Simulated scan of single mutants.
Amino acid sequence: MHIVRNGLGPYVESWSPSAVTEDDVLSPAPVAALSALLDQPKPVTTAGDPLPPLWHWLYFLRWPAQLDLGDDGHPRHGHFLPTVPDRQRMFAGGRCEVVEPLRVGEPAQRVSGVSTVATKQGSTGELLFVTVRSEYLQHGATCVVEEQDIVYRSGRSAGRHPVDLDVTAEPHSEDAWRLPLRTGPALLFRFSALTANAHRIHYDAPYAQGVEGYPGLVVHGPLLVLTMLELVRRNAPSRPVRSVSYRLRRPAFAREHLLASGAPTGRNAALSIATHRERRHATAEVAFA
């Protein structure tokens, strides 16, 4: 693990969590639940079939005891949580390589470890970037390798998040692939339950607005990424995905009209999520096999 030291460096210079190995049977039930959330008439895949890229986020979930949650709903402690005081956590992006798709209903193993810790200066102060690398295996063979970039800040951000939250305005795109998404509180609540995400900004509007300063409930970053990948699954079902790189840029909020759009360019596809006020809340690049 490589550590770049700066102001937050002393808090993590001796922090070197060991790798963790976990097991899961990849039950068909979470696939059926997410399929229903995405308004699919039946599960998009069943036992023995390939799991769509990044749908492994439905598995290997951690459910800490209620008393181990902080006021924001995030766990106070965790094997890969750095010892930063008054910690705030944000999901920034990641990369995923698909060597072979995971199969639904078959035992799987995940081996995770911290690969990089670095501090950077952001517009609101110093940030700590932690990259967690996970390898997913079935029958002893590596199927998926993923890196997730998590950003931490120490202390609460000072200001509010001024946004023209017009829930009637619709975004537009000329891309060949388009998928609208309207994210109400019920959908965000269901996605939180599916992914064991208790962060209150996604389901507790008074907290999101009064404490965190957002204009409304915040749409989950992983939901934005999975929606972008739905463009590939629905429009290019016969093209196996070899890799995905994604970045979360600006938050989107409940009841806004969201539009996932993209287009294939040879062996790749460029994807994004837009609202009327922002063309790229999230972006992704997909490479086909």
Rank of each mutant, 00 (worst) to 15 (best):
residue 95 R to L: 12
residue 278 E to C: 14
residue 63 W to F: 15
residue 27 S to Q: 09
residue 155 G to M: 11
residue 13 E to S: 13
residue 6 N to Y: 00
residue 114 V to T: 06
residue 28 P to H: 06
residue 113 G to H: 14
residue 157 S to T: 13
residue 117 V to N: 03
residue 287 A to D: 12
residue 52 P to A: 04
residue 128 L to A: 12
residue 33 A to L: 15
residue 38 L to H: 14
residue 219 V to H: 01
residue 214 Y to N: 05
residue 286 V to H: 02
residue 32 A to V: 05
residue 98 V to P: 05
residue 239 R to P: 00
residue 135 E to L: 09
residue 107 P to Y: 03
residue 136 Y to K: 06
residue 16 S to D: 14
residue 153 R to A: 00
residue 126 E to R: 02
residue 201 I to M: 09
residue 256 E to A: 00
residue 52 P to Q: 02
residue 159 G to T: 01
residue 265 T to W: 05
residue 58 L to W: 06
residue 258 L to P: 03
residue 66 Q to F: 14
residue 77 H to I: 02
residue 1 M to Q: 09
residue 166 D to R: 04
residue 95 R to G: 03
residue 244 V to I: 04
residue 115 S to N: 09
residue 39 D to K: 11
residue 260 A to H: 07
residue 206 P to I: 06
residue 166 D to Q: 04
residue 1 M to W: 12
residue 279 R to P: 10
residue 27 S to L: 10
residue 178 R to Q: 15
residue 250 R to M: 01
residue 285 E to V: 09
residue 111 V to L: 08
residue 41 P to N: 04
residue 198 A to C: 14
residue 124 T to F: 07
residue 18 S to Q: 14
residue 32 A to W: 08
residue 224 L to H: 06
residue 251 P to C: 06
residue 45 T to C: 15
residue 98 V to H: 03
residue 7 G to A: 13
residue 34 L to C: 10
residue 93 G to T: 04
residue 67 L to M: 13
residue 67 L to W: 14
residue 97 E to R: 12
residue 176 A to Y: 11
residue 181 L to I: 00
residue 30 P to D: 11
residue 140 G to S: 10
residue 29 A to I: 13
residue 252 A to L: 02
residue 51 L to A: 01
residue 199 H to M: 09
residue 104 V to I: 14
residue 179 L to I: 10
residue 31 V to T: 08
residue 241 V to W: 11
residue 216 G to N: 13
residue 86 D to S: 11
residue 192 S to A: 05
residue 10 P to A: 11
residue 26 L to T: 01
residue 223 L to R: 05
residue 147 E to N: 03
residue 272 S to V: 02
residue 272 S to N: 08
residue 238 S to R: 13
residue 30 P to Y: 05
residue 220 H to A: 08
residue 165 L to G: 04
residue 196 A to H: 14
residue 92 A to L: 00
residue 254 A to D: 02
residue 191 F to C: 06
residue 138 Q to P: 12
residue 259 L to A: 02
residue 171 P to M: 07
